[in-house]
Design a protein around this nucleic acid. Structure first.
Lengths: 337, 337
DNA sequence: GTGAAAGCGCTAACAA
DNA sequence: TTGTTAGCGCTTTCAC
């Protein structure tokens, strides 16, 4: 049987309030009383019922994190960082994945476990402004990823254009001039994909290097398989780049696999830069040069933003918070032999 | 302002109970009444307070999953499978990681968010029998991984000895005879590590192949870095295996990286078999042969076990449930040239 | 410093 | 079929 505050109170011969005071470390309790109550607590093995506390306080100490796919190491690593950041404030994390499906994302944004969660961190892939505009839930929300929502929700991003430009600049500095961008997807709302493409184009243009359409390669998704497929299609079409800037590390890894199969050597024949800096890129026959977003910072900022909303700040959200990134140079972009 | 059942009841001019009936799809409500109440619900934008429901029912519909590390793709993929399996029964998953730290594991097993969770799935790395024996919490618990706890908790495992033997048998059939085992760790309670070593030894012995101690390689952890370190140490010590069976895919990948750096070619000079079948192994310059545990089955069984406890079964747990595995052959164990 | 009592929002007996 | 009411276990005024 569960033992409640009342049981402890009776056992100690005091009121419920007093026990509650002890449990909550209320300062104005005489040491003697505290000891007496504590003894009763220990004897009965009392453990507070968090659900009741939640109901009473209207807070649960739980925040939810919804990412497209845990199988994508970037999101898994990010989730780990969020769990840690949340734990620092004694919050626990409820995890869900949306499969990058717009409908799922809408569902989650609307009212995923309302009342059970104090806030929601959502990393959308396909969610549109309008989906959020009609949002009814009152749960604080913060969005991950650079998106231009004109809405009262904070979002945490890195400067994708600038990051893409660094990647391309790095390739140019390595003497590459036919740099393909692997990650175009016209049918997707995914803004980072468009921004990275924009950065690719800007940097090339500014450097006076041509950016022909044939080097803009569409992908069907953001994983290794799709990266491989896209790379194969590009090569099959007879286009021969001397470098590839991929939407993310997974796409880059898929592309590298195909390059390898086709006998093209990375970095000698084709240099490759990814995006995300997942652990996986540090290993493999050719380690992967990549843009490394500061995941810890992103996680911390997201949690902080939620905490801010919870603390009753009335200022509307809608801030655009920017996390840092760095370019991590590895073997996939070493100079030519 | 939050709108409650009472508000809806007043608005519709009915009793709270009636509204509750409608909300919970209680069958015996006249259609007219249902419509009337539904209208009030829609008008006020009523959403049930789950916390209150939880307090009342003593159930939350939340289960917790605690894994060592989300950065390990095996656990990330498993977590995804658990989330899916839980969702099928309308459960949500609270995620935590223990960093493979015994103290953390004990903490989690004792009372992680008690009352908030209906059950706990724990994937322990260092937890000992005694830690569980003194467990006071009353939250249903199921353990992941093969462990011989003589305790009233179900655990889900695959047959590690048998799986290891398949891996070794496969290598033998490929003409390898100096097969190293990368993953010994005497200081760890991690049973699978010991069982896989046992399987390695059994298979070799039975095949009449020598299993010298020099081929049993200790690792300092279960990730890529430690795999790399262990492989480097082995080679530095002058031992030259013609195959490696690694504790898991991460260790295998770390080892392959070092083999590559040292100019040893996989599979030609050294064949490699991993364990876990993480996505990552399907790519890379050399795809990885591995033991593939049925993660979906593990997740489903774990959730089912929890559901069983929740349904009030009185039979003690303590069952040892076994999930299937398969050997997935890839490039890292192709025949010699 | 401690006690009494109200009530968070809901469900489930029990009545009507 | 629908209404009344008593809690689930806790926190929190407000007295004392």
């Amino acid at each position: 049987m569960r033992v409640s505050l009342k049981d402890v109170a009776e056992h100690a011969g005091v009121s419920i309030k007093t026990v509650s005071n002890v449990v909550n470390n209320y300062p104005h309790v005489t040491p003697a009383m505290r000891a007496r109550v504590q003894e009763a607590i220990d004897e009965l093995g009392y453990r507070p019922n968090l659900t009741a506390r939640h109901l009473r306080k209207g807070r649960t100490g739980i925040i939810a994190l919804a990412v497209p796919e845990l199988g994508n190491p970037y999101f898994a690593e990010l989730a780990g960082a969020v769990i840690d950041a949340a734990a620092e404030h004694e919050f626990t994390v409820l995890l869900d994945h949306t499969r990058g499906d717009r409908e799922q994302e809408v569902l989650v944004s609307q009212g995923f476990r309302a009342n059970v969660i104090d806030g929601l961190i959502l990393s959308p892939l396909e969610l549109e402004d309008e989906d959020l505009r009609s949002r009814t839930g009152d749960v604080p929300l913060v969005l991950l990823g650079e998106r231009q929502y004109e809405l009262p929700y904070d979002h945490i991003a890195i400067d994708n254009v600038s990051a893409a430009r660094s990647a391309v600049r790095h390739l140019l500095s390595r003497g590459r001039s036919r740099i393909a961008y692997l990650g175009a997807r016209t049918d997707s709302a995914n803004r980072p994909a468009h921004l990275r493409l924009a950065g690719w184009r800007e940097e090339l243009t500014e450097a006076g290097v041509s950016a022909p359409d044939e080097l803009v390669v569409p992908v069907g998704g953001w994983d290794r398989d799709e990266g491989a497929r896209a790379m194969a299609r590009l090569l099959d079409s007879g286009v021969r780049p001397d470098a590839v800037f991929a939407y993310n590390d997974l796409v880059a890894i898929g592309a590298m696999r195909v390059l390898h199969e086709r006998g093209l050597r990375v970095p000698w024949d084709v240099a490759v830069v990814g995006f995300d800096d997942i652990e996986e890129g540090r290993f493999g026959a050719v380690t992967l040069t990549t843009i490394s977003p500061d995941k810890q910072a992103i996680a911390r900022m997201a949690v902080a933003s939620l905490l801010r909303s919870l603390s009753g700040r009335t200022e509307p959200g809608g801030r655009e918070l920017t996390a840092d990134f760095t370019l991590v140079e590895r073997e996939s972009t070493l100079g030519r032999r």
